[in-house]
């Protein structure tokens, strides 16, 4: 997997953020927003690989890991999609255009987008988990002809919580992309599936012998999803998961993100299931 971790930006102290300015901030759903950032230092580049994340710092409040959610081929827009759940994410949701943020990154491993060329692709995700997968989807659709079937299985709490709704509809119309969405709780007008994303796997059209699966969501969802994929015959070396752990540094120093021998910040967040399968099914690792 390509790594872009040793950016020259960190010639000095890797804990020192770079300053970025909020160019735009928009709501995606009731509790989720996307922020578009511009570097203060115009020469700073923010090339990244799908699945990588940045550490975002809100002045005086704190610093948190957020995945990059934009198009890896577009070097004019640095996007992060965040669900406001606590202190830092809520403070971030209140930022206005022109406000400043600190940023360190990009960090971590990436989705095996290039390596998956020639194969069927199954993306399984729930809730905010679609954000870290969107860059992979951009990259795959940009070279759509290189892949077999491309299937996105997505679970949201309610129809109102479906992320990137318009974009998904557009992609479905313009590319050969199968999108299956399910919700936990339907609303009156909802005509789609109800239930968890794992139930979509059974009927999804892909060749289990050939497909590469990429999964991002809550840990319990990933546990069931991987079991379901294995049951359909997808090999554990072709299933990839993105793990989440507390992170205070993102560079292997603070120890918080450990998952057995792995540091999620530098060995992950994206792992081949083969490498983490046993621990993923162990309690409280």
């Amino acid at each position: 997997m390509a790594r872009l971790t040793n950016s020259p930006r960190f010639a000095l102290d890797p804990m020192l953020p770079q300053r970025f300015v909020v160019e735009r901030l928009w709501r995606e759903t009731a509790d989720t927003f996307t922020v578009k950032l511009e570097p203060v230092d115009k020469t700073a580049d923010f090339a990244f690989a799908p699945g990588q994340f940045n550490m975002l710092y809100v002045f005086g409040v704190g610093e948190i890991p957020i995945s990059i959610s934009g198009d890896p081929a577009d070097n004019t827009a640095l996007l992060h999609t965040t669900r406001a759940v606590g202190t830092v994410t809520k403070a971030m949701s209140r930022l206005k255009p022109g406000d400043m943020l600190g940023l360190r990154g990009p960090f971590g491993s990436n989705w095996p987008v290039l390596e998956a060329g020639g194969h069927d692709i199954v993306l399984v995700t729930g809730g905010i988990g679609l954000a870290p997968l969107r860059p992979a989807l951009y990259a795959i659709l940009a070279q759509r002809e290189k892949y077999g079937k491309v299937v996105l299985l997505y679970g949201a709490r309610t129809p109102e919580d479906i992320l990137y709704k318009k974009e998904l509809a557009r992609w479905r119309a313009h590319f050969d992309l199968e999108v299956h969405v399910t919700v936990d709780r339907a609303t009156e007008s909802w005509r789609g599936n109800v239930g968890v994303a794992t139930t979509l796997i059974r009927r999804a059209p892909f060749d289990p012998q050939d497909a590469v699966a990429m999964i991002c969501g809550p840990e319990v969802m990933m546990r069931f999803t991987t079991q379901e994929l294995l049951r359909r015959g997808v090999d554990s070396s072709r299933i990839f998961v993105s793990l989440e752990r507390n992170m205070k540094c993102a560079i292997g120093f603070c120890g918080h993100c450990q998952f057995g021998p792995q540091f999620v910040c530098k060995d992950g967040p994206v792992f081949a299931l083969k490498r983490v399968e046993k621990l993923l099914n162990t309690w409280e690792v």
Binding site: G60, E63, K248, C249
Partner: peptide, 8 residues
């Protein structure tokens, strides 16, 4: 070696 950070 583990550490945490505090923003004040």
């Amino acid at each position: 070696f583990c550490t945490t950070v505090e923003d004040v």
